[in-house]
Nucleic acid binder design. Structure first.
Length: 425
RNA sequence: GGAGAGGUGGCUGAGUGGUCGAAAGCGCUCCCCUGCUAAGGGAGUAAGGGUUAAAAGCCCUUCGAGGGUUCGAAUCCCUCCCUCUCCGCCA
């Protein structure tokens, strides 16, 4: 959520910033609601004040043994007017809040212009795409050839956009997760978190998935309003909701491995082949909760932490800065890490690292006590994949494939595979 | 699933219809005293919001959430959520 004060004092500047994303902010409509709110709120508070003052005097008079009847008559008429005005104010504030919850975050000044994926400038590149003396296969054919990756079996038990992994391939997938967690915990100073895979609407509103993107989520039926998490960002970031952290507790660096569940409602027909885009995938997530002054450094650190995982796996990648038209709802700035996939002969997203500044913190009520002011202030939140395990598996399969269809096991993963060096049928 | 207890400020914890936004303690900040340290004394210290260009001031809201009763609710009534204890069931 954006700062309501900023919306009140500089609506035009906010609209200009959001326009870069292609978001149209109806200034006139918002301003009209805001103007109504202002008058009404002042009126309501005046009435409440009158009621309080008179009620207090009744209490005093009663204690003094005086006749309170005339005072009661005086306050009688207040009630109805207050109630009516209050109901109206409540509805107005709800409308304003709904508009605010729908507004994306302000873009940082360094976010490049652009309308889509193709406009994301490359920041840096690491590694060289491997040269094969044969025609490299994609992971779908590789997996099928090995008999270890099975989409038909998954369709039988679930449906489209699910996968079944078997034997050493399933283990390689698990090895990736263990390896990534170990790197972040041992070397990057993260605290490992195990958190719920099912969350409530308040948590999803806190991180920004709700109310706007309900269609992207799997909602559970039943008496509770529960949802499957689309990313560990939701349960982990929300750990600091509705609280005031001590300055010494910051920065908080947390990592968690969870499955992620996405309806992919808007992506019919995209990436239907293979396990690039699934309803269920595993991910190791990185979350930072930091002092506002440190969040831009933290974004660089978090991104670098994710990159280390790929460097050790010796997987070629590049980092792009998401342009205004491609960046996510809650992010002020995002770096995507894209991995080289020989099967597709192009780079594909494997990690998305964002600084959300105070956008999520305001929705969550996540604050810290600033020792300089002694006052609670909003923290900044960041999150990024460190990295997506499903896509990392694909990348390993395609980059480490051999002419006979087998897959070499990256050196850093071999300890997690009982020393296995090659995955074969 | 059954029975009971409880949810109050950064934390612990009093408070059962009116000068209660809330005692006390802890923590924190400032000051005094004490020639280091320790101890002692005093003062201050909830959050969110409105008004304002901003501040001060003034005002409003908040004692798990939402309704209700009342001139007035932390306190009474209803619904819901959560935590704890015991029983049952269960990985």
């Amino acid at each position: 959520m954006l700062d309501p004060k900023l919306l009140r004092t500089d609506l035009a500047a906010v609209a200009d910033n959001l326009a870069r994303r292609g978001f149209v902010l109806d200034q006139a409509a918002y301003q009209a609601l805001e103007d109504q709110r202002k008058g009404l709120q002042v009126r309501v508070e005046q009435l409440q004040n009158q009621r309080n003052v008179k009620s207090k005097s009744i209490g005093k008079a009663k204690a003094a043994g005086e006749d309170i009847q005339p005072l009661l008559a005086e306050v009688e008429s207040l009630g109805d007017e207050l109630k009516a005005a209050d109901t109206q104010l409540d509805a107005l504030q709800r409308q304003i809040r709904d508009l605010q919850l729908d507004m994306p975050n302000l873009l940082h000044e360094t976010v490049p212009d652009g309308t889509g994926e193709d406009d994301n400038p490359e920041i840096r590149r690491w590694g060289e795409p491997p040269a094969f003396d044969f025609e490299p296969a994609d992971h779908t054919d590789l997996g099928a050839g090995l008999g270890l990756l099975d989409f038909e079996a998954a369709a039988k038990v679930a449906g489209a956009r699910f996968a079944v992994l078997r034997g050493p391939l399933a283990r390689l997938h698990r090895a990736l997760v263990q390896y990534m967690l170990d790197v972040h915990v041992r070397e990057h100073g993260y605290t490992e978190i195990y958190a719920p895979y099912i969350v409530n609407a308040a948590a999803l509103t806190g991180t920004g998935q709700l109310p706007k993107f309900a269609d992207d989520l799997f909602a559970l039926g039943g008496e509770h309003e529960f949802y499957l998490i689309p990313t560990a960002e939701v349960p982990v970031t929300n750990l600091v909701r509705d609280g005031i952290l001590d300055a010494e507790q910051l920065p908080l660096k947390m990592t968690a491995h969870t499955p992620c569940f996405r309806s992919e409602a808007g992506s019919h027909g995209q990436d239907t082949r293979g396990m690039i885009r699934q309803h269920q995938f595993e991910k190791v997530e990185l979350v930072h909760i930091v002092r506002p002054a440190e969040s831009w450094d933290a974004l660089e650190e978090l991104t670098a932490n994710a990159e280390v995982v790929l460097q050790r796996l010796e997987l070629p990648y590049r980092v792009v800065s998401l342009c205004a038209g491609d960046i996510g709802f809650g992010a002020a700035k995002t770096y995507d890490i894209e991995i080289w996939l020989p099967g597709q002969q192009r780079y594909r997203e494997i990690s998305s690292c964002s600084n959300c500044v105070d956008f999520q913190a305001r929705r969550m009520g996540a604050r810290w006590r600033n020792p300089d002011t002694g006052k609670p202030e909003l923290v900044h939140t960041l999150n990024g994949s460190g990295v997506a395990a499903g896509r990392a598996l694909i990348a390993v399969m395609e980059n480490y494939q051999q002419a006979d269809g087998s897959i070499r096991v990256p050196a850093v993963l071999q300890p997690y595979m009982d020393g296995l060096q090659v995955v074969t049928a």
